[in-house]
Design a protein around this nucleic acid. Structure first.
Lengths: 248, 248
DNA sequence: CGGCGGATTGAAGGGAATCAATGCTTGTGG
DNA sequence: CCACAAGCATTGATTCCCTTCAATCCGCCG
């Protein structure tokens, strides 16, 4: 089996460096276990889970619901830099950076498990966990890169397709959904802040996508009608390198 | 001394988590040492240093010159996601991610020291180095976040100010310059791809900044005329949380 | 000198923002 | 049970920032 075939075969989840994979899997197990020892918390939609001023904030494993990281400028302009889904670990980088420079806000009613920064720093003594934490941050970074490319070079329609397909794929990979229908508990204002556009234009663009019979977004329910076509809009012009990251 | 005063005092470089700082400093030393044991390399301007297809690529410490990470879409649109300056360590995340999903290109003639992914993975056994590597990726992520906010919510003039002030501050912090004049060996096309605009509009906006007597960018030479005013454009509306990150 | 890549400038067009009004749910209270 | 307010979404009209297209210019090098 060739290398490329191998890559296509294991299309679930992010592709790690083969020599590191063993450690990563084990580190992942240990890390999850550490989270499970912590008690579960919950926050209602709209609550700020992490404040930017907070020093040495805890790290969260999201159990249910959706959260996002956002930064607000003094004049009120806001950008949502990342969407966190169930299974995501939020804020891993802050254990060395001494604090987030953004807020983490519950986008829906949320349940999660916090792990104190100190505890996690202690766990870093285990190289497998250290590797795993590094992988978490690396994965975030990869997503951030893709998002930057989108913000810099895609138009509104493309951004929305990428956004929706992305969420779909992440939920699918985690086996949280089995059909191309899911719930995104963000309102259009929040989507706009994530994609660098206005609510008005999100609304118009969603209408267009609906008319094109690509996807229906009503309230918080997303129904993807033509996943293949959406992928084409999203990645039709993505480079081969980027395509490899996204499972078909 | 209050906490905020303390923060302002140590205004050089990124602020780390206090409990981790000791480890980080030591890990940093060890890491630099590992790089210095490797031989120096050089690449001419325009060379691709890391290809996106490359599996398990090495990590680089840049010695002299400038490089950037870029992703190109199939239709030719390109986004430059990050600028790497002397002293930066490039590609640390790829030791677990199994490869970059972007190219790293020499923006000028470049000299650097590579460290193989395998070697660095071995060094991760040392918790101090592991912490330090995590900090590297975390720092990158922080910059990525700032850049996303810029792409999403700043206009052309603001983006250019942020960009130039950012480079200035990074060079200043590393003590590579002492006056607000420096060299950015990127052409306007590359700047445009970094800031998500067109070369034509970069040109126009730079003219405007010149007329406003804020900064002169001629060829590859940047002369900042009014640093304070530029910071105001750049961060005038930055949130307090973001401001703290940037040294005055 | 001529040619070339990069930068500049002008004119025209378009995508998205802005302003503003209306509609639709939902929840609350009379 | 309806009225009404509040929040969110939709739609239209207008404006504007930025892109696109195209021509010119400038410094550099063979």
């Amino acid at each position: 089996m060739s290398a490329s075939e191998l890559k296509t075969t294991r299309s679930m989840g992010p592709v790690f460096s083969p020599p590191a994979t063993e450690d990563l899997l084990n580190g992942g197990r240990l890390l999850r276990r550490a989270f499970l020892e912590a008690g579960a918390c919950s926050s209602r939609r709209g609550t700020t889970v992490i404040e930017p001023e907070q020093t040495d904030p805890p790290v969260f494993l999201i159990h249910r619901g959706l959260a996002y990281s956002s930064a607000t400028l003094a004049d009120g302009r806001r950008a949502i830099t990342e969407i966190h889904l169930p299974g995501d670990i939020v804020g891993a980088a802050s254990i060395v950076m001494g604090g987030a420079h953004y807020s983490v806000i519950a986008g829906s009613d949320l349940s999660y498990r916090p792990l104190s920064a100190t505890t996690l720093r202690g766990l870093m003594g285990n190289p497998q966990i250290a590797m795993r934490v590094l992988a978490l941050v690396g994965e975030d970074r990869r997503r951030a890169d893709r998002h930057m490319v989108g913000l810099a070079r895609l138009d509104a329609r493309e951004r929305l397709c990428v956004f929706l397909v992305d969420i779909h794929d992440r939920l699918r990979r985690r086996e949280l959904i089995s059909r191309p229908t899911f719930n995104v508990s963000l309102n259009q204002d929040e989507i706009a802040d994530h994609l660098g556009m206005t609510m008005v234009h999100v609304s118009r663009t969603l209408r267009r996508l609906r008319e094109e019979k690509l996807v229906i977004v009503d309230r918080h329910v997303v129904i993807i009608l033509d996943l293949k076509a959406m992928r084409e809009v999203a990645l039709g012009q993505a480079s081969e390198a980027v395509k490899e990251i996204i499972p078909a």
